[in-house]
Amino acid sequence: MTATVKAATADALPQVRTDRLPLLILPVVMLLALPAIFDVPAWLTLTLAGLAMGMMIFLMASGLTLVFGLMDVLNFGHGAFISVGAFVGASVMLPLAAWMQADSFALNMAVLLPGILAAMLVSGALGYGFERIVIAPVYGQHLKQILITMGGLIVAEQAIHVVWGPDQIPLPRPTSLRGAFIIGDVAIEKYRLLAVAVGLLVFLAMMLVLNRTKLGLLIRAGVENREMVESLGYRIKRLFVGVFVAGSALAGLGGVMWALYQETVTASMGMQVMVLVFIVIIIGGLGSVGGCFIGALLVGLTANYVGFLAPKLALGSNILLMVLILLWRPQGLYPVARR
């Protein structure tokens, strides 16, 4: 993302070209969908659903794209953190089902928040182990990386079966997050609203860290040139492990949110969502958090609009979206500058 220009004395300052074009796609897609759907309340509902789905995908994808940008590591096993997060969350919440079903926001949250926290902790810890044991030995070797992390995914999925059994687990949403606010003809689902809020919050927090803290500067500098960051005296490996763990924890958060959205938890859910996650980070430009955010929202919106207009084409539409964007920008919306 490009910085804003504040210089008042603009006598011969070079022009900073801010690349805002990709930002325009979102409103354009929304506006194009309006006449196609031809029903304002339905359009509003679908738009909210699309944004909610996009935000959840963003949670799961952001860590992956940052890890790739920083270390050129693509973890195909990222889906395991999503599934594990969902299962851990369910394990914490289900024994307290009575509180979940109670008609009290406070009681609901008293279950939901520890569930989310546990999911993030376990996914993060798993991410740490995964990085140390599985990924660290194969730095810089893409082929092995893909194979090993895929193998890790298989093992993780099977291990979930060993721990939690072979069946899917139903996970009903807490009472206060069920239903919708009705405003006129428009139904705004509460859970979707929450998903949008959480996604936005995480995105803003990430942007704040990346742009306003030294840690964020280091990450952005590392994405551009990790050798130079090391030459300035910073241990980039440590930074990388930190980002990897944070990304895994976010995947765990995304997993819980996704599970509550679907109201079931399955071992293969991580792998299923990963398809969308990959599409999102390709669209966004591998390594770019901003691109990932726009890409995720685009994918969410497209899936919902097309799902309404031509249900059978929903997933195909995302592939089509990816193809169109890559035809326009072969490296994704915001290609990351590299040496």
């Binding site: 993302m1 910085a3 500098a221 551009e224 040139n225 050798e227 030459s231 500058a337």
Partner: peptide
């Protein structure tokens, strides 16, 4: 370094 390796994305 010869390539200068400035961080182009940073101010």
């Amino acid at each position: 370094p010869e390539s200068m390796a400035i961080f182009a994305d940073l101010t």
